[in-house]
Amino acid sequence: MSQAHDAASGVTHSHKKHYLRIGAILTVVTAIELALPLLKNYPQIWEPARPLWAPALIILSIAKFGAVVGEFMHLRGDRKIYYFLFISPLMLATTVFVLLSLLSVVMFRPFGAGYAVTAEARLAGYVEPSTGPAFEQPLDDAKFAAAFDGAKGKQFADGKKVFGEKCQACHGAQGGGIANLGLNLTDDCYKYGGSFKELYLTIGKGQAGGKMPAWAGQLKGEEIRQVMYYIKSLKGTNVAGGQPCVGDKVP
């Protein structure tokens, strides 16, 4: 306490030692924070205390925050109006932060339980989505082709509906593509392969680092198949104003 008081009262001796000490404490706390993730390698320590690690990190960072504001900015012991001017918006900002985080959980619930978890697992290395049989294994090109030939009519109408909901925002209402967003689906070129199986996988798993999203979590396998057929039916229609050809020409 006396340190901060001196700082505010203009006493003409140096607080160098005090600041160096605070710097050393901050360094040690940061080192502890960095060491925490490494504890994962020691499951016998990590697992039993698992729920404690995140709160521990948060408490350490609050301590660092307090040390910088209280000592370096010497808000501690300075005039109360500075404290008021800074701490009240800080409280408001913290409330906004906490509410947004909670709202995020509530708002995304309609997308299915564990939406975030499945989305991340899906990306981390493709796994079967929990909602609906998205990927019927094995994906067989010959079977797809047979179904495609016999499926004119209803299948394409269903696929067109899915296309209108999920695809046209980037690929255009006619499938001609949009510059910097989606490729032209009406030419003979396919950047990620034009076979039934390849198209199916591109829709399900995504491409281009997620620019083409992985739809497997949001669409059922049947819907992916329908939209894949619809896209396949667009091939060679070459709508006016379509984007230039990208990728290999597929006969």
Binding site: A93, S104, F108, Y115, G210, P213
Partner: peptide, 21 residues
């Protein structure tokens, strides 16, 4: 504080909601 509070809050609002990597 409000400025960065909003930016950090927004980051966490959308955390884990990306459709792609």
């Amino acid at each position: 504080c409000m400025f960065f509070g909003s930016l950090i809050g927004t980051y966490f609002f959308y955390h884990g909601k990306s459709l792609g990597g």
